[in-house]
Amino acid sequence: QEEEKEIKRLAKKFNASEEEARRAWKKAGGDPETAEKILKKKG
């Protein structure tokens, strides 16, 4: 599933848990760029 792959990639890229990545993904409405910004800010 595309979403799961994206979440795993985000978690790995930002050294975050999949739970954090999933939360960022949901907050971003499934937009990878926005999710990255959220995780970057958090990191």
Rank of each mutant, 00 (worst) to 15 (best):
R22H: 05
K27R: 07
N15S: 08
A16H: 04
K40Y: 10
E20M: 06
E6S: 08
L10T: 01
A35C: 07
G30S: 04
N15D: 08
A21W: 02
K27M: 14
E36N: 03
E3V: 10
K27A: 14
S17N: 05
Q1D: 15
G29I: 04
A28T: 02
L39S: 00
S17Y: 03
G29S: 07
E33I: 13
E6D: 05
W25E: 03
A24C: 03
A16N: 03
Q1E: 14
A11C: 13
G43H: 14
K5Q: 12
D31E: 05
K8Q: 13
E3N: 09
G43K: 12
F14R: 01
K13P: 00
E36D: 04
K26I: 15
P32K: 11
Q1I: 13
E19N: 07
A35Y: 02
A28G: 05
I38P: 00
A35K: 00
R22F: 05
E20F: 03
K41W: 11
W25L: 15
R22Y: 08
K13W: 04
W25T: 04
K37R: 12
I7P: 01
A28Y: 01
A11G: 03
E33A: 13
A24Y: 02
Q1A: 13
K42F: 12
A24Q: 01
G29F: 08
E20N: 04
T34K: 15
E6W: 14
W25C: 07
E33T: 10
E3Q: 09
R23C: 15
E4Q: 08
P32R: 14
K27L: 15
L39R: 01
K8W: 05
I7Q: 02
K27H: 09
K41C: 11
A11R: 05
I7V: 07
E19M: 07
K26R: 13
I38R: 02
E19H: 06
F14C: 13
G43Y: 15
L10A: 01
S17P: 07
E3L: 08
K26E: 15
E18C: 10
N15M: 08
F14K: 01
R9S: 06
K40W: 09
R9E: 06
A28M: 00
L39D: 00
A11I: 09
K40S: 14
A21S: 04
R23D: 15
E3D: 11
K42A: 13
G43V: 14
K27P: 02
K12M: 10
W25G: 03
K37T: 09
K41H: 14
A21N: 00
G29N: 12
R23N: 14
K41S: 14
D31N: 12
K27S: 12
K40D: 10
K5P: 05
D31M: 03
N15G: 13
K26W: 09
G30E: 03
W25V: 08
G29E: 10
E6L: 12
E4T: 07
R22T: 06
A24W: 01
P32I: 15
P32M: 13
S17F: 03
A24S: 03
L10Q: 01
K41G: 13
G43Q: 14
W25A: 03
K13C: 08
N15K: 09
L39W: 01
E18H: 08
I38W: 05
K8M: 11
A16V: 15
T34F: 12
E6P: 02
F14D: 01
T34P: 01
A21E: 00
N15A: 08
F14A: 04
T34G: 10
W25D: 03
K12Y: 06
E36F: 03
E2L: 11
A21D: 00
R23A: 15
R9G: 04
W25S: 03
S17L: 04
S17G: 05
E4I: 09
A11Y: 02
L39P: 00
E19V: 06
A21K: 00
K13E: 08
P32T: 11
A11M: 15
R22N: 04
E4L: 09
E3R: 07
K42M: 15
G43W: 14
K37V: 07
K12N: 10
K42R: 13
K27Q: 15
E20Y: 03
R22Q: 05
E6N: 08
K26Y: 11
N15L: 07
K40R: 14
S17E: 03
L39V: 02
R22W: 08
A28V: 01
E6Y: 10
F14N: 04
T34V: 15
K40P: 02
L10S: 00
R22K: 11
K8V: 09
K12L: 12
N15Y: 06
E18D: 07
K26F: 11
A21L: 02
A16P: 00
Q1P: 13
A21P: 00
E6C: 10
G30M: 04
I7Y: 03
R23V: 08
E2N: 11
F14I: 02
E2H: 10
E33G: 08
R23Y: 11
G30P: 01
K27W: 11
A35E: 00
G29A: 09
F14L: 06
E4K: 06
R22A: 07
K8C: 10
L39G: 00
K27I: 13
E19Y: 06
G30Q: 05
I7H: 02
K27E: 15
A16D: 02
K5T: 11
K40F: 09
G29C: 15
I7F: 03
K40L: 12
D31W: 03
K12C: 12
A35I: 06
K5R: 14
A35G: 00
G30A: 06
Q1R: 11
R23W: 14
A24L: 02
Q1L: 14
E3F: 11
R9N: 06
A21I: 07
E3H: 10
K12Q: 12
Q1V: 12
G29K: 10
E18I: 15
I38M: 06
A28N: 01
E18N: 05
T34R: 15
K40T: 11
E33H: 09
K26G: 09
D31L: 04
E6H: 11
T34W: 12
K12P: 01
G30W: 02
A11H: 02
E18W: 11
K40E: 14
F14Y: 14
R23M: 13
